[in-house]
């Protein structure tokens, strides 16, 4: 490149006024700014490649680690989604024995089972969750048909008097092992009790019906709103099926339909109560708990009725 050539001095801010100067009028005085700028820009590039320079005209590090809060720009995408942070419960699980991992999983399943067997253990947590959801519903203007002012005061006092411990929050996680096991055993029992000819048919039919109705229930809960996720609803309603499993097991031994019927009423009521408390904990909106639990009760009643009449 010849030394005579000089870049045209263009201020990007005045781009509107840009005009090509005729070639004949060539400035003969060297402007000292241009080489300096050129040098500094190359320097900046070198700097940013080498050590990620911090202060220069063209700061590359702005692109490497932008000083922009990205959560803002994702907002339109996440507007309808609930992002729930999950508490990290375990320590370093990479080099622990397999038995320990299994033990932890079994403990979690057992705990969830316990919350179905004794739903009252969750009642305090349910109260707090419902209170939070009530506030959330009020803040986002969802009509849940409850007078907000009445509930607030005594609930807050209750919560202040009895603080929550960590072990309660662990019950908020979900898994599908319990539902899978329960539906399998339930379908096997019903299949064995039905006549030989169509026992495999009954097994597959019951298994498919249970899972599809649980899925429909979970979609229904999703449609009613709240912070509960699809699989969480599936897990909750699946675990609450446990009393129905007891009904199926007892119906192997008890052939008299009248006693079966009495057991049916008791155990279905128990299932529905357990499901109610668990769904409240997992985030169904307060004024819609009945709407969420009603189909659940219907399905439990149908499944239990199948145990009574076979």
């Amino acid at each position: 490149m010849s030394k005579k050539w000089k870049p045209v001095a263009v201020n990007p801010d005045e781009a509107d006024d840009f005009e090509l100067e005729p070639d004949t009028i060539e400035p003969d005085v060297e402007t000292p700014v241009q080489p300096q700028q050129k040098a500094s820009s190359t320097q900046a590039q070198q700097q940013s490649q080498g050590q990620g320079g911090s202060s220069s005209f063209f700061n590359f590090s702005n692109f490497v680690s932008p000083n922009i809060d990205l959560s803002q720009s994702f907002n339109p995408l996440l507007k309808n989604e609930q992002v729930r942070e999950h508490a990290f419960t375990g320590g370093d699980t990479l080099d622990e024995p397999v038995w320990k991992t299994l033990e932890r999983d079994f403990k979690a399943i057992g705990q969830r089972l316990l919350s179905v067997m004794w739903p009252a253990s969750l009642s305090k947590l349910a109260k707090i969750q419902q209170h939070n959801l009530l506030i959330a519903a009020r803040n986002s203007g969802i009509n849940v048909g409850i007078n907000f002012d009445q509930l607030g005061q005594d609930l807050e006092q209750d919560i202040a008097n009895t603080p929550l411990d960590d072990s309660d929050l662990k019950k908020l996680a979900w898994d599908l092992w319990g539902p899978l096991l329960f539906t399998l055993v339930f379908a096997v029992i019903l299949g064995l009790m039905s006549p030989e000819a169509n026992s495999s048919e009954v097994f597959s039919g019951v298994f498919a019906i249970v899972w599809s109705t649980l899925a429909v229930i979970a979609v229904n809960i999703q449609l009613l709103g709240g912070t509960i996720s699809f699989f969480n609803a599936l897990s909750t309603t699946g675990y609450a099926m446990f009393p129905l499993l007891l009904l199926a097991i007892t119906s192997i031994f008890i052939k008299w339909s009248f006693i079966r019927f009495i057991l049916y009423v008791i155990l279905v009521a128990w299932s529905v109560y357990a499901a109610t408390v668990n769904l409240k904990v997992h985030g169904v909106l307060p004024g819609r708990v009945f709407l969420a639990i009603y189909p659940v009760g219907l399905v439990y009643a149908t499944l239990g009725w199948l145990c009574v009449i076979t």
Partner: peptide, 8 residues
């Protein structure tokens, strides 16, 4: 820290 629920 109450959860936010969208209403649209």
């Amino acid at each position: 820290d109450s959860p936010h629920i969208s209403n649209n």
